[in-house]
């Protein structure tokens, strides 16, 4: 470690502090990553117990599959819509919470409760809640004379978007709220002396300070929305036809049919599609003093 150019004491502590991370990456991440890439280059499937190396053929098969690109298109639209809506609503909700009011502690927990339900269970609960014959929502709507179909072919996509917003706005909220806690009170006080309204001062002060949090939240939420699986799969199975097939469902179907090579290759393509967002996020996190 002494070979580092700068004889800074940081040179040693960085390795010590970074050791757990580096050890974990080496022990747990490198092999699966490498093996996964290896599988992506094999014609491995259940029907083919002795796979051979076929290079980029799987990637080519995925890239040439029009249904893959339809899945990508649906996924991109889904991701952009839910991420932006959730970020905005989550931020507004955090602003609303960012003050004293009775019952705050309990309500904070209640607000993030939806995030605590495993998506696999949440999908089933949505399926029950929205069931036309035994679900609560259609029954209540029909009391008000609204005989609308929640899963009809016109309604299903907006429905899925709404459900995602319902479950994941609290995620954005939690991160924004935690971020706001590090904005010193003094800043707000200074702003209110100037006579600016709460919402205005809140926006003026918190938005710039919370930009890194917003970027990370957008990244985490965006990537997770891009990889959404359980709720959509449980509710629609990707249908009707492939109208709601997202990339995760595409990959899962390949995987559960035993087409491991294709599933791995499709995963690689998805990663490549998303890769350009990484530098954008990481740049935001870079230490301003060092860059």
């Amino acid at each position: 470690m002494s070979q580092l150019v700068r004889p800074n004491r940081a040179s040693r502590s960085r390795w010590v502090l970074g050791a757990p991370l580096l050890i974990f990456l080496a022990a747990v991440v490198l092999f699966p990553l490498g093996y996964g890439l290896f599988v992506a280059g094999q014609d491995r499937s259940l029907l083919n117990p002795d796979p051979s190396w076929i290079g980029l053929d799987n990637i080519a098969a995925v890239v040439q599959d029009s249904s893959f690109w339809r899945a990508v298109r649906f996924t991109v639209i889904y991701t952009v819509v839910v991420t932006s809506v959730e970020l905005i609503l989550g931020f507004l909700l955090a602003l609303l919470f960012n003050r004293r009011f009775p019952g705050k502690r309990l309500l904070l927990s209640l607000t993030i409760l939806p995030v605590m339900i495993a998506p696999a269970l949440m999908g089933i609960m949505f399926r029950l809640l929205l069931n036309q014959d035994i679900g609560l929502v259609p029954s209540v709507l029909s009391v008000f004379g609204w005989e609308i179909s929640l899963f009809g072919t016109d309604a299903v996509v907006p429905m899925l978007l709404l459900l995602d917003v319902l479950q994941w706005t609290p995620f954005a909220f939690l991160l924004f709220y935690a971020g706001m806690q590090s904005v010193p009170d003094e800043l707000y006080e200074a702003a209110s002396i100037d006579g600016s309204g709460y919402w205005r001062s809140a926006l003026a002060i918190t938005v710039p300070l919370l930009l890194p949090v917003a970027v990370v939240t957008a990244f985490l939420r965006g990537v997770d929305a891009f990889r959404t699986f359980d709720v959509v799969y449980v509710l629609t199975g990707g249908g009707p036809g492939d109208y709601t097939t997202n990339v995760s469902i595409y990959i899962y179907k390949a995987f559960s049919s035993g087409n491991f090579g294709i599933a791995a290759a499709a995963s690689v393509v998805v990663c490549l599609i998303l890769l350009p967002v990484v530098p954008v996020v990481v740049r935001r996190l870079a230490d301003p003093a060092r860059s």
């Binding site: 970074g18 990537v223 690689v268």
Partner: peptide, 30 residues
């Protein structure tokens, strides 16, 4: 170590962030 002490010079962080992009099922068999 990465944020203040320069570990990985930003590339390590990029790598870790990129891990998130890969669908989880990719890692199931490995």
């Amino acid at each position: 170590a990465m944020g203040r002490l320069g570990l990985g010079r930003g590339h390590l962080l990029k790598g870790i962030a990129a891990l998130r992009l890969i669908p989880v099922i990719f890692f199931a068999v490995p």
